[in-house]
């Protein structure tokens, strides 16, 4: 049975391995050079304290390949579920070859277990390999990335570490389970994609923030966390402060909620364009022409603070393992339903 499953998967597995080998080679060739540039640049900028500019420049040079490899890691599990797992069952059901397989001295449970197991392992191995390769390669870039592309931020988190392995296991189990119930290739593929995409969107939006209790802290207002100050002439000259999604002193954290507290500790309203801070703009530090830093210092002095709810960067690996565990559990649940289906529904 292992031989048969391998024989059926052989072509696509080899193709996948070839693609991964090519990507691996490219990453291996470009990785060390990029890392060397990063190290040298950091040494340079530390001396001149221009590291923020260096980060921007360095990341700007590599942002396209960065996004491309990240996307690759995110798409690979979906690919395995869509093109390996779902058709693996439905093609047999459509051609009736499952009857041929079951006519041999092999139980249906074993047939499914071997098919699901091997495909799952292959997809997980591919995702794991790809994920770790990309994690290694993009290390310097993750270090330099802007806040919304930080390692623990939703867009990048799923493309790093071990969690792609969990996605792959889930995608394959999903594809197989959908194939069992839908029984036709194209609808099964479509449904697999839809469900997988829905779960992948729901996870960072609804689930991941709550996997660990987020940290809530207040921070002094300063150039590090203020995106900009604007003075709206119609609004009575009150300056509006827009905050960056960053937490001073905790670089690379994933900010879930962000706002300004007034001196009494009440949150200020934020209409998306910033929060109005009642401070004079006709004279004093925030008057037109005054230095940007002086104004934020003044606001800070008046007792205004940033309050952020966030996951710090250190939680990257705990979150990775928890999420991998969740996907593994989902995969097991789907596998269980497939085994139920093969006993009760298929013949």
């Amino acid at each position: 049975m292992i031989w048969l499953t391998w024989r059926q998967l052989r072509g696509s597995a080899i193709a996948m391995a070839a693609v991964l080998a090519v990507i691996g080679a490219v990453l291996l060739l470009t990785g060390p050079g990029m890392a060397a540039r990063h190290t040298a640049g950091l040494a340079d900028c530390a001396a001149q304290s221009t590291c923020l500019q260096f980060y921007d420049r360095f990341f700007g040079d590599y942002d396209t390949p960065f996004l491309a490899v990240s996307l690759l890691v995110v798409l690979l599990p979906a690919f395995a579920g869509l093109f390996w797992a779902a058709p693996m069952i439905t093609r047999e059901l459509e051609a009736g070859t499952h009857l041929l397989a079951w006519s041999q001295s092999v139980t249906r449970r074993r047939w499914l277990a071997v098919k699901l197991g091997i495909t799952c392992l292959l997809a997980m191995a591919a995702a794991c390999l790809c994920g770790l390769m990309v994690t290694w390669w993009s290390g310097p870039l993750d270090d330099s990335a802007p806040a919304d592309l930080a390692l623990v931020a939703p867009l990048v988190f799923g493309a790093r570490g071990v969690v792609p392995m969990g996605y792959a296991a889930f995608a394959v189990a999903l594809g197989v389970a959908v194939g069992m119930f839908v029984r036709r290739t194209l609808p099964a593929m479509a449904l697999t994609l839809a469900v997988f995409a829905a779960v992948q969107i729901a996870m960072p939006l609804l689930v991941r923030p709550h996997l660990m209790a987020p940290v809530t802290s207040t921070f002094e207002i300063g150039p590090a966390n203020v995106e900009g100050i604007s003075v709206d002439r119609d609004g009575g000259g009150t300056p509006r402060i827009r905050l960056k999604s960053v937490t001073p002193g905790h670089p690379g954290s994933w900010v879930l909620a962000n706002g300004i507290l007034d001196p009494a500790g009440r949150p200020l309203a934020d209409d998306g364009g910033g929060s109005a801070v009642p401070v004079s703009t006709t004279s004093g530090p925030c008057a037109p022409g005054a230095a940007f830093g002086a104004c934020t210092t003044e606001i800070n002095r008046l007792g205004y603070r940033q309050r952020a709810t966030f996951h710090p960067l250190e939680r990257f690996w705990p979150l990775q393992w928890i999420e991998t565990g969740i996907y593994a559990a989902l995969a097991l649940g789907l596998a269980g339903s497939s085994f139920w289906a093969i006993r009760r529904r298929l013949s």
Partner: peptide, 27 residues
Amino acid sequence: GFVAQDAPVYTQLTVAEHLRLGARLNP
């Protein structure tokens, strides 16, 4: 033994591979 309706076979596999399949899956 069971030969299903319309005698399904794996179209992508060769005759030899079918026999190998049988040899591997039947004691």
